[in-house]
Design a protein around this nucleic acid. Structure first.
Lengths: 335, 335
DNA sequence: CATAACAATTAGAGCGCTCTAACGCAATGC
DNA sequence: GCATTGCGTTAGAGCGCTCTAATTGTTATG
């Protein structure tokens, strides 16, 4: 288990350690035959550069720290794909940590990454307090994904929740709906803005009188509960805009449990266009965030600071689209 | 951005660097007042230990490398929870990498972790060739999760696919099914064993004549295709056992598309008991692997080698159970 | 032919930490 | 009184690498 070091390779190749270092870093000014000799020796010995030592000496880790607050949420996996692609192109590694859905867990994960002296930080859907984020950003370039800090100097990438909500509402309005209710996402990231966007869009459509919000959260149970509340009413809505896909799935279950069908009796729109929405027989109409692109942009923002030395704050807002599927249709008139 | 070092803390606290080191490592033989002085100085300066330097000097990283081959598959997220819990209890960090669903990506991820000199490796659902796994295991203690290497000396934790398949078949047999077909998982991890288990269970139930396997894979599309093949037959099966949940979801879509219903016309069983299976309105009967426990065990095996110095190989097999939900019922007699 | 210019190579000083060995100093024993 | 013990502390040598500056060898230039 004693791993060969650069010194060993140098000796085996009959050159100095510095020359081996040059070869390993792919520096240009090395003669072809020496380069080959070094590579051969390294291969023969099974040499593997020690990233720790390299980083200690070079003050860079070539690693980005990515914190995901919930691995089970497809939102994060999608964003990660974009980040990974961009990072790989720049030759950076990723170190992933997860907050385990708790704020304390997130703080711990953040601390871990800072101790590893990662070159930059991408916090996806982070729920920790703003001051902790600012503190981290003061030490290491940081980009927030799916959240923004308006009061502080931290880069961010998020989608325009207002537009997303408007797309959902407009789509339903165009289909002829008026009684469009919203099951909100409680304290989830972006939930408040989705709700505000819904209310604004309803007003813009002249439907202020039909605004109706029931409380839920970003889970299936939240959707079940929200739908139950709505269906218990004397004059239930004809369409439901749920805070996210999981919530919509819950709402659909409840609708079906009561013997109604979608979209004949109720139209249903979700948010996130996650893997759930796409599942063939669910086929949920959903607001789609360009996750991969967002991840891409987040990594890009980091590199702008790391490589180009940008210092001014950038708050990037992307525009969601609507993926129309099988859960929306014209209202039946009345129930 | 110039981070304070241990030297700075030592100076600020009026002690030697070695003493600061002792305090940071929570070593016992330090007087209370000095310890406090050091902690205060560290806090005041915003000192954060440099894990890189620590690891270089101590030859340990206190970090486990975990490779997941697909973040989108809930199977992995579940296993990770178990790993994370155990690792945290031992004071170890996790470094996650993802193979991006490709073998080449897995190899790259593995190499990355080895260069970081992680203390141990857990490969979840790895698809890379056995010799590369053996090579990694020779350098760093390694545990395979969801796969086993019978020919080589590598620890592993996996579920008994044979039992899983048998549970599925027996359940269907008890409901009265005879024509039970299997949509297999192609080259996915464990697919071959699930298939073999299915065949064996069918024979054991005296249904050897009804054994029928159509090719699919661990995806929705595979399920759609497999179900289409089965339903096109003159005498279609009355029950379908799919290689995994996603595959089952695809099969269900196809069944529904053709105007049949589940479980009235066809019973359907999945595998993995993933988040898809639980979704209220899907409610898929599925073979359930104790994911968290498996992750737990995997981490445990690593610590046994790391801490206790175990050297003999352990191949741990856990027993799956069947989560019976709404997609299985008695056959209708005939179609 | 001496000299400048350049490419290829290397010596050596760290990077921030851990860890061994040794040190000072009090309490203890004879 | 002097050796013994043990705790609290520290000096100093690395860990495996990068990077600057110096050195060597080679070719073009006046």
């Amino acid at each position: 288990m004693a791993r060969p070091t650069m010194e060993d390779v140098a000796e085996a190749a009959g050159v100095s350690r510095a020359l081996v270092s040059l070869v390993m870093r792919n520096e240009p000014n090395v003669s072809a035959h020496r380069r080959q000799a070094v590579l051969e020796a390294a291969d023969r010995l099974g040499y593997r550069p020690n990233v720790l030592a390299r980083n200690l000496a070079s003050h860079r880790t070539m690693t980005l720290g990515v914190m995901l607050n919930d691995l089970n949420n497809p939102f994060f996996a999608g964003a990660l794909d974009g980040i990974a692609e961009r990072a790989e192109a720049e030759g950076y590694q990723l170190m992933l940590t997860t907050g385990g859905k708790t704020v304390a867990g997130e703080a711990g994960a953040l601390e871990t990454m800072l101790r590893f002296h990662v070159d930059g930080l991408i916090l996806v859907g982070a729920r920790i307090p703003a001051n902790e984020i600012v503190a981290a950003a003061a030490v290491s370039p940081t980009v927030l994904l799916g959240r923004a800090l308006r009061s502080s100097e931290v880069d961010s990438v998020k989608n325009d929740e207002g537009v997303g909500s408007r797309l959902a509402v407009q789509h339903l309005v165009e289909l002829g709906h008026q009684r469009i209710a919203h099951i909100d996402g409680g304290r989830g990231a972006g939930a408040a803005q989705r709700r505000a966007g819904y209310e604004k869009a309803m007003e813009a459509a002249g439907l202020a009188a039909f605004v109706e919000v029931v409380s839920g959260d970003f889970s299936e149970a939240g959707g079940v509960h929200g739908a139950a509340t709505l269906l218990d009413q004397e004059a239930p809505p004809t369409a439901i805009f749920a805070a996210n896909d999981l919530c919509a799935v819950g709402a659909r279950s409840e609708i079906r449990r009561r013997g109604f069908s979608v979209p004949e009796d109720f139209s249903l729109v979700g948010y996130d266009n996650s893997v759930f929405a796409e599942l063939g027989h669910l086929s949920l109409t959903s607001v789609s965030q360009p996750l991969a692109e967002m991840g891409h942009r987040a990594a890009e923002l980091l590199f702008e600071r790391l490589v180009c030395g940008r210092t001014e704050v950038v708050r990037h807002v992307v525009t969601p689209t609507l993926a129309v599927r099988a859960t929306t249709g014209s209202p039946r008139g009345n129930l």
